[in-house]
Design a protein around this nucleic acid. Sequence first.
DNA 1: CTTGAAGCTATAGTTGCTAGAGACATTAGG
DNA 2: CCTAATGTCTCTAGCAACTATAGCTTCAAG
Lengths: 146, 146
Amino acid sequence: MLTIGKLGEAAGVKVPTIRYYEQIGLLPEAERSAGNQRLYSRKAQGRLAFIRHARDLGFTLEAIRDLLSLSDRPDQSCAAADAIAKAQLAEVESRIARLTALKAELERMVVQCAGGKIADCRVIEVLGDHSLCETNHRHPETEATH
Amino acid sequence: MLTIGKLGEAAGVKVPTIRYYEQIGLLPEAERSAGNQRLYSRKAQGRLAFIRHARDLGFTLEAIRDLLSLSDRPDQSCAAADAIAKAQLAEVESRIARLTALKAELERMVVQCAGGKIADCRVIEVLGDHSLCETNHRHPETEATH
DNA sequence: CTTGAAGCTATAGTTGCTAGAGACATTAGG
DNA sequence: CCTAATGTCTCTAGCAACTATAGCTTCAAG
């Protein structure tokens, strides 16, 4: 049995994140030691690795919740799992498409900036006037956070 | 002078978003009508368009705050604006790189799924075992929200 | 003059965590 | 066996960038 710290280390997940996953019901409530500390089995470690891996692939926690409950029923059809993965793939593809358009526009801006005064700055000018753009980067649909 | 609704319509920004921008100091406090409703000048409209456009290009509100204050000082050097745009370009490029790796892995998963039972599902299997992956899609660095 | 749309403020919710406070548990060294 | 350092506990609040709700006031059209 692993303590939460060891588990986090093994799975590459921070300790508060594990507690958070338990809190939102993505991980089952852990067993506790005599002193009320969480203890994890190998099975729990596998489940956390699954979550971590799916997160790395960009699945939302909601999608992961569904995937986990599917993986708990091994004799059902995998159509649902397939659909979730395909949806994620489509999402990733559309993000790439959008980001590629942004990249083109940003490159244009940066290249055209001659490095003079703000008044002549192409960056500022283009931002102020969308009609100076070549591509249609309207409709965000999903943007990234840091 | 435009009401907040007209302004939002003109700039493609939702009304609560405009109030939010004012609240965080990205837009100056609007003038008010006799009945306490916000009124906007053409200048304000331009500023909002600038913000909207920069958001469309993926700049954070913090970066936009800086860009706006730069654009208010037209005789300064545009090096700072250039740097912000270049940083944004780098950010976009690294996101594209990461998403492209994810896309490859998701495609592999989806293609290999034969559509049988969960027990044989490649999607579930790969998620449970990172060593089945070809690419190294570790280290998220920044993931997207919806 | 009345009705319905649009505006106001204030608060809480979204996603996926992360950070902090203050208290208890465990472990290693002396 | 005692102490100090680390680990863990709960709880709350914060991050980005909005969005949604509630309960009110104001405005424009008929």
